[in-house]
Each structure stands twice: as C-alpha cells, then as structure tokens.
Write a protein that binds this DNA or RNA. Sequence first.
RNA 1: GCCGCCAUCGUCUAGUGGCUUAGGACAUCGGAUUCUCAUUCCGAAAAUCACGGGUUCAAAUCCCGUUGGCGGUACCA
Length: 472
Amino acid sequence: MRVKTRMAPSPTGNLHLGTAFATLWPFVLAKKGSGGEFVLRIEDTDRGRSTKEYEENIINGLKWLGFEWDEGPFHQMDRLKLYQEVTDKLISEDKAYFCFCTKEELEQERENQAKAHLPQVYSGKCRNLTIKEVEAKKKEGIPFVVRFKLPEDRGVVEYEDLIHHTVKFDSALLGDMVIMRQNGIPLYNFAVVVDDWDMKITQVIRGDDHISNTPKQILFFEALGATPPQYAHYPMILNQDRQGKLSKRTGSTSVEEYKKDGYLPESLINYLALLGWTHPEGKEIFDIAELIEKFDIKDMNSSASAWNQQKLDWINGEYIRKLSDEELTERLQDFLVDHPAREKIAPVVPLIKERIKKLSDFIPLTDFLFGKPEYEKVIFEQVVGDKKAQLPMFLSEIKSTLEKASRPWSAQDFERSFRELAEKLGLNTTQMFQLIRITISGKSVTPPLFESIQLLGEEETIKRVEIANNLF
RNA sequence: GCCGCCAUCGUCUAGUGGCUUAGGACAUCGGAUUCUCAUUCCGAAAAUCACGGGUUCAAAUCCCGUUGGCGGUACCA
C-alpha cells in the first residue's frame, strides 16, 4: 500500500523545535517508500490563537529545514463544509446529538465526579432528548453543541501502536465528546478524523501526548464506517533538565532563533533525528538522505529524551568542518547580511573553520580583521607578568623588528626573527607571540598569527603596533 | 482524583535470558601536538541497569507491585 502521512501544525506560535521534530518523522516515513506522499495541513480551528503570521513563520521555517510536502498546505477553516456534512450525517444516523447543557452545568458535574473520585465524564443528559424537545430548545435560542454518541457496550478500544505495544482504553471513560461547536467550527479530535479519512492518510505518526486521543479518534472512524490509519506515538522532547516537555523555560525553542544563532539546518535535522531514533550502526552524524535510507520505525525510541545544547553544538561544529571552504564562505555571507566586508570573508574562512561551532562565532573571532581593535592595558600586562614595566620597550622592539624584515614578510622569517627577539628580551615564545597577537587584535585569542597578519597587510600591522605602543 | 505512556553513566543511547568485569557518543578531567584558541590523537573518571518481590541453573533483559517522571482528562490543538 502506498504510504501517505501528514503533519498538522496549528499556527498558534512560531515554529518550535518540537514542531520540527514532529515534521521529521512523517516526512521520513513518506519518503522511505516509493511513491509515498507527505501532506501539510494547517489546523487553524482555534480562532483565538491562530494567526497568519505564525503560519508563515512555520512554513518558512519548515522550508529552511529542507522539508517539502506533496500536498497542501490545506487549511481546516477552508473545509468547514465537509465537517458540517459529516456531522449532519452522524446526527441523521443517530450517532451524534445536540446538547444544550451550559458550561456551568458541566463544570458542576465534573466537580461532583471529582469529589466522588470518579472519572470525569459527561453524564449524557441531552442524549435522549426527543426531536420535539430539541426543536423547542432551538426555537428558544438556547446555545447548543453536537456531541458524539458513544456506542453502548463498545467496551475496550484497542490498537497496535507502531512504537509502543498494544494500547488499550476503556471507552466508557471517554463519555459523549463534543465534536461540533454551535458556530460550525469542529473540535480537534473530530476534524482530525474527518481529514485523515478524507485525505486517505495511512500512517499517523505524532507525539505521545496524543495517545489518549487515539481511542476517541478510532471511535469516530468506526462511526464513519472507515478503517483507522496505523498509529505511531513517539515521546516528547524534554527540557535540558528533564523537567517537563521542551519549553522556553530552559532556553530558546524557536527554530528561527537557532537560525539566527548560526546553526545549520542539516545539523538541526541530524540532532533532532538522534533524539528520536537510533541509527542501526550507531552512527551519530548522518544526513537526511541516510536517515531516510536507514529509517525503520522499530528503531524509534519509546522513552523521552532531553534536549542537550552541548551535543547540538558539537554536531553543528562537525557539519561546519565538513563544508568546503567555498560552501562555508557562502553560508557565512548569507548569514552575515550586515557584515562590513562580506567580500573579504573568503580568505578568512580556512583560518576559522576549525574554530567555530556556530556561524555567529565568526564575528568575535575575526572582527579585528575588519575594524580597529580595542585595547585594554591589563591584557598586555597579564602576558608579561612582572615584566610589565618593560612593555614599552618590548613593543618598540617588535615594531623595529617588523620594519627591518624584508618584504613581503614570510612566515619562516617571521617566526625565526621573533623567536630570536624573544630570547634577546628574556621572554618565552608564548609570551612573545601573545604580545604580538594582542597588539594586532586587542585579544588573547585569535586565528593563527602569521596568517592573520598577512590578511591585515604590512602597513596596517605596523600601524597597530604603533598605536599599541603609544598606550604605554 | 481517574486514564495512559515511560524508567541503563550528568545527558543521548547499545543491549530482546548466558557472548557484559554493562559497550559507544556528548559533556567533564588528564596527556600528546602547538604562537593563543580550536582541530586531531591518546587516556581517565562516570551506571549497585529506579526500588521491592517473583519466574529461571542463569535477568538490565520475562512477570507482578511500588516509586518517580511525563502526558491526557476542555465548546485547546
């Protein structure tokens, strides 16, 4: 059978890492088989919280991550007619009914049940209203909803979860669920079933927060006279401290933030994959194509894993180092739209490739190459320790050594003459080179010295030594 | 409260009854390379397999219970 999966985000917030995670699995499952299809469906029936902006953010983010869909995006709000037709059909078949209970009544009911340590289930008060009674209440203008009539004696609803084992629920604990609001907008569980049925979805793979929705949805499929799809529920990603599902509490969860921070889409995908699935050979670095090739739903985790920023950073570093210099240059240029000298990024790339974990690390590491350094006397003093009184002399010696050197400066001569100078001045080589480093950059950590100086040029380098010298 | 899901180093995991003195990865610590920082390489520390009972000649692995974490219990999705 041809596989058809779907991802159904609700546009009630920006693209969340959890949503990206939720998109990965149905996407991979669809791409796995030949001719599989992946559908994007926007579940926008929560009118209070859904916005067009969130939807755009989600769609753009999914595209940035590399996801493509074969159908959609569909919108549930465009499909109200269908939900209404199905609802009418269920009513006419006596599988659903009108309910006129007020919010207060229902709350009272639940409260009483809680006090009696009973499961909180709708009493079915409006279940047996006659047609006449219904008409009369409607005429009076009493607000109503449509409830699903839970088949009596349905007993235990059971299904084979592709990730868990057999999952069983007692349908008696479900009660008669509301499926349609008075305003004609359906409720989540009902709309999902109508859509999955209408769109002929074969596999539903989603977070395990939906496990308890599944028996309800199966019951709806049964009422429709349809076979439910196969279900697979993966665990939710937990916060770094394992307290609760991934939320803003312990760090950013917005995909856009990660993009702005300089994470590569492919490393995000790789890390997300690691959180839900284990490569059969235990590999940790693999691209989406390999994931699709090796994917088997049986290798998905059944226990929840916690978000780990350090591991993501490591993976991102791995991917940066795997890029060619040309490719990394392009990525940096796209990333650093406001950079003062984007055309000068290319020659710097080989120097920083092994030194950055995120694209944003480029800036602090290289800004001295593109603008004047800011000096702090203490940093110089820390290098030479108790010889700090001699700093002016050290700096002018450095300057004259540079001026004496034959041009263009060569790495070999440079290294040799400064090792000699270090010895002459009673400094060790580390101190010598650190002093030069700080002089040209204002920092104690930079890319390799001689290559940096080459990029700066001889004149600029000597100028910086002069400026530094004037500090003392 | 009721219903459900889950439970191996700090974190992610391997492990499907004997091959396990529980293996790997990230992070941590030490060492080598080195002009700094990284990279790379080598090494160390880190899990009484949540707890308590069973089953078995043998259990991290099977069963039951407990505890803990998480989720659901809406005219949210």
